[in-house]
Design a protein around this nucleic acid. Structure first.
Lengths: 226, 226
DNA sequence: TTCCTTCGCATTGTTGACAATCTATGGATC
DNA sequence: GATCCATAGATTGTCAACAATGCGAAGGAA
């Protein structure tokens, strides 16, 4: 991890980033109770900045805090994870629609290029779900940003994705249907390239809905447990 | 403000609530730069808890913070406010749909009762936009909660509404069309009572879209400025 | 044996002092 | 007269000690 990222990067920012990635990567397991002093020694921090970071993380819903009783990593149930996908469905649908209206031609070209790279990733590293998940994240990230809707991007990238990614890492599988997902991504980008916002929204909603149903099925079949 | 709200209510919580309401009510104006020590003396706090609260508020997008340079109340431009309404449209649409599927009969009855009370409020206090806005907030609040979607309610009530309310207080006008809004509310509740989620979603989206267009028109006509 | 009470300890919440950084004011130079 | 630089002041970031609260272990009573 780089010592200096931004010209001004406070300890609290550092603590926030460390904890966030630790939670997302699963180094801090959901439901795990964590002590402040333990975290301090683990990340070489003092309690001041740490507590500030804890406040931010709590506000984002990654931690739950009970006064005088410590903090726990949030544990999301299967049904709650499904609810997250419902929210993603409508929000990313909006993002796709606005992206179709507002992304620059250059951004769209870049997006298509990343899809090519994702295709190579799938061919080369068959079954390496981790990299597929990263590619998937990259795609959705670009569209959220491309919507030019600051708050929307902030909510998607700063809240929802972290919670979803948290479980992606744990499940060690993206949607489990990489080729099909890639095809859906391509169609969405096509719609965006044609500036057809309505279609882009429809396709994105269907895409996320399919991902949700896929996970739901796996959970019901007992393939994966949460 | 009560001294003890919850059995355990920390200073940081207190600071958070104070600042949040101060921002929403406009006591701290958008764009205003605020010093920490000034806030401390104003709310009788020390800097530790205050800083923790500032972190939370920044994370929620109500403050912007530049290291070593202080915090500013976020100032939302007219176009950004419109974007907020776009987000509300899809998210509250989802909330209405899920509320139709999940609210209890008792909750629906209560919701209808509050609409009756809102109607009286409109008749009695004609033009008292403040109370109308509160009634409007109450309605949307109940539906967000009724969705039984924890994260959705959290995002709506904890993020979006505060930003929207911030400007409602400033503009000192709800949507400016109380009777019409009430009628739309009634139709939405009817759809929910009939457990017609699809219709509830459609009506809610149209309701918020109308509110957005109404504000947009007023802004363009120069009636209100942001 | 099991439940309740009580006490001690560990952990969290809070405070005030110290260090690092930015902004603004003033002066000097072009 | 305008622009750049330097210094001073204030403000923010950080730290370590102190106070308050919750949790668990130990002991006694039913």
């Amino acid at each position: 991890m780089p010592e200096i990222l931004s010209p001004t990067y406070t300890r609290a920012d550092e603590a926030f980033d460390c904890l966030q990635t630790a939670i997302v990567k699963g180094d801090l397991a959901p439901g795990e109770k964590i002590g402040e002093l333990e975290l301090c020694s683990r990340f070489n921090l003092t309690r001041g900045p740490l507590r500030e970071a804890l406040g931010r993380l709590e506000s984002r819903g990654l931690l739950v805090r009970r006064p005088h009783a410590g903090v726990k990593v949030v544990s999301v149930s299967a049904s709650e994870l499904m609810e997250l996908y419902r929210i993603r469905e409508v929000m990313e649908g909006l993002a796709a629609r606005q992206a179709a209206e507002r992304m620059t031609d250059q951004e769209i070209a870049d997006l298509q290029a990343t899809l090519d790279s994702h295709e190579r990733m799938i061919d080369e590293a068959q079954g390496q779900a981790y990299y597929q998940a990263e590619g998937d994240y990259d795609f959705h990230h670009r569209i959220a940003t491309g919507s030019r809707n600051t708050k929307l991007a902030q909510m998607l990238l700063g809240d929802l994705y972290y919670m979803v990614r948290m479980y992606r890492y744990r499940l060690s599988t993206s949607t489990g249907r990489p080729q099909r997902a890639l095809g859906e991504h391509r169609r969405i980008v096509e719609a965006i390239a044609q500036r057809d916002g309505e279609l882009a929204e429809f396709l994105m909603k269907r895409h996320i809905n399919a991902a949700r149903q896929n996970i739901e099925k796996k959970i019901q079949e007992g393939e994966i447990t949460i």
